[in-house]
Computed example of a mutant assay.
Amino acid sequence: MIFQNRSRCRENKSIFRAGNQVLQHTHEYTYLGLKLSSTGNFNLAVNELKAKAMRVFYMIKNTIRHEIPIQTWLKILQAIIEPIALYGSEIWGPLKTQDFSKWKKEAIETLHTQICKSILKVNRATPNNSCRAELGQHPLLINIQKRAVKFYQHLKRSDPSSYQAEALRCQEQNRPRSTLSQLMLKLQPDQHSTIWPNQIIQLQKLNDITYWKDATKSQKKMELYLNLKRDYKPAEYLSCVKEHKVRKTLTRYRLSAHCLAVERGRHRQRWQPRERDCVCVCVCVCVCVCVCVCVCVCVCERERERVSECPLSGCRERTAPAEVAAERERLCVCVCVCVCVCVCVCVCVCVCV
């Protein structure tokens, strides 16, 4: 494999032989578990690591048949998933963007967000910032920077005559083109003072929290969450609430991932004008009143016919027969039922509006 920039014609004119056998050119090669590309980027390697970590996570999730605590899932994420996803990040990590606003679109961070949503059992439309904050998870960029700092310090402490020390010296001679050196200058501006990796990580976490607060203020969907969530740490109810159905419902309410009209209504494209809603209410009320009036008129007419057919109709003050009284009771029940139905329809229409 020949490392070169992508050109119009990728056919290599050079021929390499091992004895009498001609070696074939390849554009991809897996070395120590990382898939290398002839262009020199690690996008193929990162995508393959993402796929491996995703397969492992869902294999574990499908194997566990019962509900386990959220803290256990976070330990599985830290102890099993992250080492797979961040394999070799000491090399390819500095090549990625170091800005928190752009890092969220990277393949590894999308994996992290997807796993957090799966642990919380919320849908894909849930804001990424709220899912990570609910679990107290910082972006994986911070862990990558920690690995890169440790790797840089390891190279600095290595034998000066070793190949890795010589390679580091060559990179530092041309720092503008050395991503590792640029990362160290960003994380540790004062090269003369010794700053331990944990100190750098704590500083980066504070920077991430500052960015999180600024980013969430501009999201309307996060208004409720900002009133409930004040600290960037795992929510207390995740460990206190043992019933998983109740915890799932509470999580969806806090993260605005529920199906209530207050949340789903914001995504509706067509809203009826307020005047049209008022017209609908007025029409519904008028129809109900007309129905009630018609029923009352029918009852009165029926009662008049029944009295006129009665043999004692000549004297209206006398008591009607038993059939007339029973018919009157049935008609009264029908009128009451009709009125109740009309009132319920009016109330439902008003509530929907």
Rank of each mutant, 00 (worst) to 15 (best):
N43F: 00
C340K: 02
F100W: 13
K13F: 14
E223W: 07
L185Q: 07
Y31W: 07
P94A: 03
V341A: 15
R330H: 02
L135T: 11
E243T: 10
T39N: 09
Q204T: 08
K13S: 06
V279G: 09
Y211F: 07
V349I: 02
K186H: 01
W196Y: 14
L44T: 15
L180A: 02
M184F: 03
E309Y: 06
P69I: 03
C310Q: 10
C296P: 10
E305T: 15
A51T: 12
R230Y: 00
K248Y: 05
W103S: 03
I68S: 10
P197S: 10
N227Y: 01
L224V: 02
K35D: 13
I64C: 14
K229N: 00
E223T: 05
C336N: 10
L228S: 05
Q204L: 15
S38C: 00
C315F: 10
C292T: 01
K105W: 03
A320W: 08
Q137H: 11
C116K: 05
K104F: 10
Q71A: 10
L120C: 03
R252H: 00
A85N: 04
L36Q: 02
M59K: 12
P176S: 07
R147C: 08
V347W: 07
S193F: 09
V283C: 08
C282K: 00
E305M: 15
D190E: 12
E275L: 06
R264W: 10
A167Y: 00
S37M: 00
A133H: 15
E243S: 13
C286H: 11
F3Y: 07
N227D: 04
T126S: 04
Q204E: 15
K245I: 04
Q164P: 08
V122T: 12
K61F: 08
Q182L: 09
I119F: 14
W92A: 01
N129F: 13
C131T: 05
R177N: 08
E67V: 09
C278Y: 12
W92I: 01
P139E: 05
Q71C: 03
C340D: 12
G33Y: 00
L32A: 01
E275P: 05
R330L: 14
Y163N: 03
C284P: 09
E301K: 14
E263M: 13
Q153K: 14
V337R: 13
S38I: 04
F100G: 02
C342T: 14
E172G: 02
R132D: 05
K75E: 07
L111E: 07
T30S: 04
R157V: 03
E48Y: 02
G265H: 11
W196M: 12
A320I: 11
R330Q: 12
A148E: 03
T251P: 05
E323F: 11
K242V: 02
K96F: 07
T126P: 10
Q78H: 15
M54F: 09
L74W: 04
P83R: 12
E223I: 14
G93A: 03
G265F: 06
A235D: 01
V299G: 11
D190P: 14
K220P: 10
V297F: 10
N43K: 13
K217N: 09
I115M: 13
A322Q: 06
V122S: 10
T210V: 08
C284A: 01
R306N: 04
A79I: 14
E28C: 11
S193M: 11
E236R: 01
N123Y: 05
Q153L: 06
C296L: 10
E275G: 04
R132C: 14
A165G: 00
V335I: 15
I80F: 01
